[in-house]
Write a protein that binds this DNA or RNA. Structure first.
Lengths: 200, 200
DNA sequence: GCTTTCTATGCAACTCGTTGCATAGGCAAG
DNA sequence: CTTGCCTATGCAACGAGTTGCATAGAAAGC
């Protein structure tokens, strides 16, 4: 149900079309939410029919017309209600962690490239977040007295930065572990487990 | 699709019933995966019908019979194939981050209780992970020369520990920010920067 | 001229995941 | 002795999310 609320927050911050929302969620810093455009269009339509959003057709030149959505009063109320409800703390589901444990039944060294690729992606993300932070919050061009919304956006972004830094450090740890297992020198490690090894 | 692979890995580590898998995923340390029992039963049934799993009916005394699943050769092959495919790096979807940004349009102070609750949950999880690490990997009772599977389980667990520590630190940051916004009088009560407070 | 990319919206079909409910014996607390 | 919890499996319905496809004009590169 949280996509609905993410849309409400995003539209309160700035009204926009389904397409624009998709891009905010997809690439933007500070939302930490993903959704495809199909999902967004579908939910927008439902929310509009329920009266929590208002639409305005905006004719454009040189590009297709768009439907600009904004939050109606019932939407604001729904968001407020949700903010006062408790939500479940996240449990992370990390596909890569499954792969790492699975590598015990295959060749651990074969995962190195994959882990390095993830490392690059997270490093790029971190760089993008840090650039955004400098631009919007801590740089010389940022508004000096931040308002409430900006303070809150900043603390969320700091969360994203902390997450990427933690992930990068962990991936370094993973790489070191995989390499130690691949090059068994002396006492530690080595594929000498008692399990059925890499078949297939 | 990764639930299938998480099940394969878990069953390779140790065969078990749907019920047992549900508990491993639900509460256990080191999997970082969640699934309800219904989902697991459904997928197990499909995987069995596809021939990637084998079932064995195990009669029990004092409790209902169970179906113990184990990985068949095609399952091992499927896992191996998956391990060599690239996967998308995760993008985190944090409901709480949406709430925090949404609080700009409501009362930020009202989120304090919720954030504190999440803080407690993550602290408990961290304590559980650390206890597990001591028990299985770094304590005096842990097997001294870890085998490949154990090394990999340990590095995944270290990831969980790093995640919880990062999250707890971030929630501290969030709490400090919320409190600074709620008590605007103090010229510099802020967590790190000495910026002036809110101006809603 | 042709292909690709960007803006912009949408349908159809599918899988993934959650919630509510049902069954059923054993066990422990009140 | 009744209520509730634990083990163990499962159906039905719904909502969330993904993938493939379709349309369509404008701009930019080959």
């Amino acid at each position: 149900m949280a996509l609905e609320h993410a849309i409400l927050v995003s539209l309160l911050e700035k009204p926009g079309s389904g397409y624009e929302l998709a891009r905010r969620f997809e690439r933007s810093i500070g939302y930490f939410w993903t959704a495809t455009h199909q999902q967004i269009y579908r939910v927008l339509k439902r929310m509009e029919s329920e009266g929590v959003l208002a639409v305005r057709e905006v004719p454009q030149q040189g590009r297709p017309d768009k439907k600009e959505y904004s939050v109606a009063d019932p939407g604001r109320a729904a968001l407020s209600r949700w903010l006062h409800e408790p939500i479940e703390p996240e449990s992370l589901r990390h596909d890569l962690a499954v792969k790492i444990r699975g590598a015990a039944f295959d060749d651990p060294a074969a995962l190195v490239d994959e882990v390095e690729r993830h490392h690059r992606v997270h490093s790029d993300r971190l760089a993008r977040y840090l650039a955004g932070e400098l631009r919007d919050f801590t740089g010389p061009d940022a508004p000096a007295p931040l308002d409430t919304g900006q303070e809150l956006q900043h603390v969320v972004l700091r969360g994203g930065i902390a997450y990427e830094r933690m992930t990068i450090a962990w991936l370094d740890d993973v790489l070191a572990t995989l390499r130690a297992l691949g090059a068994p020198t002396g006492a530690r490690g080595g594929p000498q487990d008692g399990r059925p090894g890499p078949s297939v």
